[in-house]
Amino acid sequence: MSTQPLVCPSCHGPAATGPDANGEYRCDYCGTRFRRAAAPAEPAPVVVKVSPTADGGQRTTALLLGLLVAIVGLSVAGAMFWLGAQQDHESASPSSPRTASASTPSRLSAEPKVVAPRDSVAVQAPAAAEPEPEAPASASFEFHRNQSGYKESYYALGIVENTSPFVIDKPKVTAVLLDADGKELGTKFGFATRGPLGPGDSSPVKILIDDPPAHDSVRFEVAPRKASYVPPQVEGLRVEPGEPRPAKYGDDRWEIDGKVFNDGAEAAKFVAIEIQALDADGKLMAVHSTFADADLVAPGDEARFSTGTFAAAGEVDHFEFSVAGMPGG
């Protein structure tokens, strides 16, 4: 009788019922009918399905588990080695932001490897230098004299000077009327006749004190303001006045005619001429302005002007003239 285990040729099940009268077996697992093969001289190798409860199955399972544990162990060891090398590289790199705060065992040596914490130095960025505050606008006023007007009214004449390091608008000058005890009785104001004023520039000021209350003295206050806009001026304008002549009617009245020439490269419009009447000490006795007759003075052209009749505060020693114009396109 054959000692070979009976195995189903279809599902390789180890159990079968039979044989029957025809010598056939029936597989208890899949129902396949088959006959036992004759035993060869040398048993042919067969595939055996291992049962978990069989002794041989336990040895195979143990072998497989051992191999699996070994593979997992090698994988874990490789990963730990790679992580350790990466941390060592980061701690040795000067650009690495990580520092060790405790001793770390080496994975390559039995001796513990201690990585000292990196010194932490707080470096404070230099504070940005604050820009120096700009000096406030400033100007001074020098009172020269009063010039008579209609009835009790009069003009306060003087010169205002820009003492700021930048351009200012036409300064406002306020005349404060005071009684004998210094009490304020009222105020009047006027503006510089020229402007804007550059640093160190000056301009006449003429303040009308109309219908003033009886007062003992006047205090002047200047309110300068930095220029927000400086209008362009045409360069190359010059004035040639005629001989000043006393007016036919009225004492201390004058009339002056003259011409304006444009020696510049662009046309000028709103060409204004200012005349200052001064005494022998250079103090202001009158200030008057007029415009050129032409609406536009082209380069190389000229235009006439006339002051008409204007009054001065006394005996005039000399006159000073200035001219200015805006670009006319």
Rank of each mutant, 00 (worst) to 15 (best):
L6V: 10
L6A: 03
C8P: 02
C8A: 09
P9N: 01
P9V: 03
P14N: 02
T17S: 11
T17C: 08
T17M: 08
P19T: 02
G23K: 08
G23F: 03
C27G: 03
Y29D: 14
Y29K: 08
G31Y: 11
T32D: 02
R35L: 06
A38D: 14
A39Q: 13
P40L: 11
P40V: 09
A41R: 10
A41V: 14
P43K: 12
P43M: 09
V46N: 14
V47S: 12
T53S: 13
G57S: 03
G57C: 05
R59A: 01
L64V: 03
L67D: 06
A70V: 13
V72M: 06
G73W: 14
A79F: 03
M80I: 12
D88S: 08
S93H: 14
S95K: 07
P97W: 12
T99A: 04
A102Q: 15
T104P: 05
L108Y: 09
S109T: 12
A116W: 01
S120K: 07
P126C: 03
P133T: 08
P136A: 15
A137E: 02
F141L: 02
R145H: 00
R145D: 00
K151G: 10
E152D: 13
S153F: 10
Y154E: 01
I159Y: 08
I159Q: 10
N162G: 08
N162I: 01
V167M: 08
P171I: 06
K172T: 01
V176D: 14
G182W: 09
E184C: 06
L185T: 07
L185W: 13
F189N: 15
R194T: 04
P196G: 03
P196M: 04
L197F: 00
G200V: 04
S203F: 03
P204V: 01
V205P: 03
V205H: 00
I207K: 00
L208H: 07
I209Q: 00
I209R: 05
P212I: 08
A214W: 04
F220T: 05
E221T: 06
P224F: 08
V230K: 09
P232D: 14
V234H: 00
L237E: 00
E240Q: 14
E243T: 13
A247V: 09
Y249L: 06
Y249F: 11
Y249G: 02
D252W: 02
F261T: 08
F261D: 07
N262F: 01
N262V: 02
D263R: 05
A265E: 15
K269P: 00
F270E: 12
A272G: 01
E274Q: 13
Q276V: 07
D279F: 04
G282M: 04
L284N: 10
T290W: 10
T290C: 11
A292F: 07
R304Q: 15
F305S: 07
G308H: 13
A312T: 05
D317E: 11
F319M: 09
F321D: 10
V323Q: 05
A324H: 11
G325I: 14
P327G: 10
G328C: 04
